[in-house]
Design a protein around this nucleic acid. Structure first.
Length: 334
DNA sequence: TAATTATGACGAC
DNA sequence: TCGTCCTAATTAC
């Protein structure tokens, strides 16, 4: 899933490509037919991302709330205008999109305006819709391009502007909300470093954690405590804090709690800018290059059960915590 | 062809 | 603590 960084990236895509335009909405799959009918013809007015949820406002005080869940994704096609910070993400064009690669890191549009993108959300193959620039388009390309793009698989919602197509598949939530409902949804969420004032967020997060007997490994996954952290970032944040996931929140030293918040703000920002769940950002460049070369080599502990800890060599432990896989180093994390 | 897996969250006991 | 929902790719048989 798309943890918080993906959702913020998706919101930026909507801001660039859909906001300010009228959409033709449909539900090819049929499961959001009524909602699509209500949306269709309206202009998108703004987009908000909070934690793992995205809210897209339409004319008439109407909001679309989307939560991608574990494997939801948005596929964009057509002419994609790209946020500069996103476009400058590490180019991985041409790299095989194996399962697990961060497809949302795929360059959306390269400098030549040549090839495009892609899918944002859970890992999946880019069913690449291609957009040729005016200069490079030729008859063959035109023949290959179809508009609107053919529907592939289970598309819950398709939003079509004059030039851009956004397909939503596999969301855990896709519904229309009133402004009050949006406010109520957001009110239940913990602070998001990209939404809330950082100092206030730190206070809220710290106060909440230090009040609870719940293991910190559970608190970090609780979206009412802090927004946007998922299973990968949880494991990595705890490792980076050298903290045992079972430590009750109230027993984590205050300064450590604050450092976790600051680290989350750092990792989230890096994630949004690079499209990758970069958690070994403090490695030297050469070590980093090596680590990034292989998909299973990018984290301190996540997905490394049974492998030696990168620092102390102890076997990384895999255990279930609240029915999610938790990876940690029993030697480094005390 | 079926089973397994996944970056999530909710509701019923 | 479980079962359930959502989808598609990969792996196992």
């Amino acid at each position: 899933m798309p943890e918080g960084h993906s959702v913020h990236r998706i919101a930026r895509q909507f801001d660039r490509n859909v906001v300010g335009r009228a959409v033709e909405a449909s539900s090819p799959q049929g499961r959001f037919a009524e909602g699509a009918a209500v949306l269709s013809g309206r202009e998108a007015q703004r987009v908000r991302a909070v934690g793992k949820q995205m809210f897209l406002e339409f004319e008439g005080d109407l909001w679309l709330r989307v939560h991608l869940g574990m494997y939801g994704a948005w596929d964009f096609a057509g002419e994609i205008i790209v946020d500069p910070t996103i476009a400058s993400a590490n180019g991985r064009m041409g790299q095989t999109n194996q399962r697990g690669t961060d497809l949302d890191a795929a360059p959306v549009l390269d400098a030549a305006g040549e090839n495009s993108l892609t899918s944002i959300g859970a890992p999946r193959k880019a069913r690449g819709h291609v957009r040729m620039s005016e200069q490079t388009r030729d008859l063959d390309d035109a023949a290959i391009d179809e508009w609107p793009p053919p529907v592939v698989g289970q598309v819950r919602l398709r939003l079509l502007t004059e030039t851009t197509c956004a397909d939503l598949r596999g969301p855990t939530a896709c519904e229309l909300q009133t402004p009050d409902e949006v406010a109520a949804t957001i009110a239940k969420l913990g602070p998001d470093p990209l939404v809330d004032d950082l100092a206030e967020g730190e206070e809220r997060f710290t106060a909440t954690v230090r009040r609870k007997p719940t293991p910190i490994g559970l608190l970090l996954m609780d979206q009412s405590v802090v927004s946007g952290i998922g299973n990968v970032y949880r494991a990595e944040l705890l490792y980076r804090a050298l903290l045992d996931p079972h430590t009750p929140g109230k027993l984590v030293p205050e300064e450590v709690v604050r450092e976790i918040w600051r680290d989350w703000t750092r990792l989230l920002q890096i994630g949004v800018e690079t499209g990758q769940m970069m958690t070994m950002d403090d490695l030297d460049p050469e070590a980093y290059r090596r680590a990034m070369a292989h998909r299973d080599d990018r984290h301190w502990v996540y997905h490394r059960a049974g492998l030696p800890c990168r620092v102390c060599g102890t076997e990384i432990v895999l255990e279930e915590m609240a029915s999610r896989k938790l990876y940690w180093c029993p030697s480094c994390q005390k």
